[in-house]
């Protein structure tokens, strides 16, 4: 009985959330529709369809009614403005893929009053927008207000963010104790040169690294697909089948596993069904740097040639594997 009631409550709650979501979707669809916008921009009359959204008001008091109408009008205008702003932001995020925003550090002792400049890096992988990466910058240097520093970020450790930050967002020069001589001055000069920050370059370089990383991951997935390695679990089953019956294919030189072997997904470890293992090293942009295949008797150059077939880029290998299959 009690469990029944609980289930019912759960169901109702789930329905409430879905309805709420639907309501939000409909509201934003309605408000972005051109006709609605037209209605709103050209002085809207009280008994338009928009009044269905009205709040309950006292009916027969004309003064309060007009007030309420004005209030509603304001609300609608606000909603419209918000929606438009959001649409614009989405457009920028979609097309520019590198956007900034302002945030506030909740820490009461944060530097610079908690002002935060956020970088948002969009990543598209397999025709989908992934969760963006964020870099949050602050200005901790009291001596120079224009120097930024990376405060927080959500980049995985395989992106060399720290190195890029040192390169493009160098801290302002610290006033060194005065010394004399050309050496000292040259060092100062160098330091000054170093301390010039370039947020745009930083953001571009960072985005480049992120996109490269995701492309490499994507290419690994493509390779797996092309080699017919499928998802985990499925592969094992296929392997067993292959050993038993499917011998008219290529049972011995079939690939059984391709997986990234390091954090940056630049090294791929490759396994064949007959126990040979290989390691493919690719460059930043997917060019093949090296491939080593080890068989039972040391290096297996033939298998390496067989896999690459003169390919220069990893995508060529994908095509090759797909064609061979």
């Amino acid at each position: 009985m009690a469990s029944n009631l609980d289930e019912e409550i759960e169901d109702l709650r789930a329905r409430v959330t879905t309805l709420k979501k639907q309501l939000r979707v409909h509201a934003s669809t309605l408000i972005t529709a051109p006709s609605t916008r037209q209605l709103l921009s050209s002085a809207p009359q009280p008994d338009k369809p928009t009044t269905t959204l009205t709040l309950p008001t006292h009916s027969n008091q004309t003064r309060s009614q007009t007030e309420a109408q004005a209030h509603q009008k304001n609300l609608l205008a606000d909603a419209l403005a918000q929606q438009q702003a959001h649409a614009q932001q989405c457009l920028y995020r979609t097309c520019a893929t590198l956007t900034t925003f302002r945030a506030r550090d909740p820490d009461p002792r944060a530097v610079d009053g908690g002002a935060i400049l956020g970088l948002r890096i969009e990543v598209v992988s397999r025709a989908r927008f992934l969760r963006p990466y964020y870099v949050l910058l602050n200005r901790p240097f009291p001596s120079s207000r224009h120097h930024l520093r990376v405060h927080r970020h959500t980049l995985p450790p395989c992106i060399p963010m720290a190195g890029l930050a040192v390169r493009y967002l160098a801290p302002p020069p610290t006033p060194t104790p005065s010394g004399s001589g050309g050496e000292q001055r040259r060092v100062e000069e160098k330091k000054k040169q170093r301390s010039r920050q370039d947020l745009a370059k930083f953001a571009r370089a960072l985005r480049r690294e992120v996109v490269r990383y995701h492309h490499r991951l994507g290419v690994v997935a493509d390779l797996r697909n092309a080699a017919g390695i499928g998802r985990a679990g499925y592969g094992d089953q296929e392997e067993e089948e292959g050993e038993k019956g499917d011998s008219e294919g290529r049972p011995s030189n079939r690939l059984v596993d391709i997986s990234p072997a390091d954090a940056e997904a630049k090294h791929l470890s490759i396994e064949w069904a007959d126990g040979r293992t290989g390691r493919l090293v690719m460059g930043d942009d997917g060019e093949i740097v090296k491939l080593v295949v080890l068989g039972e008797n040391g290096r297996d150059y033939e298998a390496a040639r067989g896999l690459l077939g003169g390919a220069v880029r990893i995508e060529d290998v994908v095509k090759r594997l797909a064609a061979l299959r």
């Binding site: 979707v25 934003s28 972005t32 918000q82 929606q83 959001h86 649409a87 989405c90 995020r93």
Partner: peptide, 9 residues
């Protein structure tokens, strides 16, 4: 998170 979603957050 996805910029293709126009529903006001």
């Amino acid at each position: 998170e996805t910029p293709l979603d126009l529903v006001l957050p």
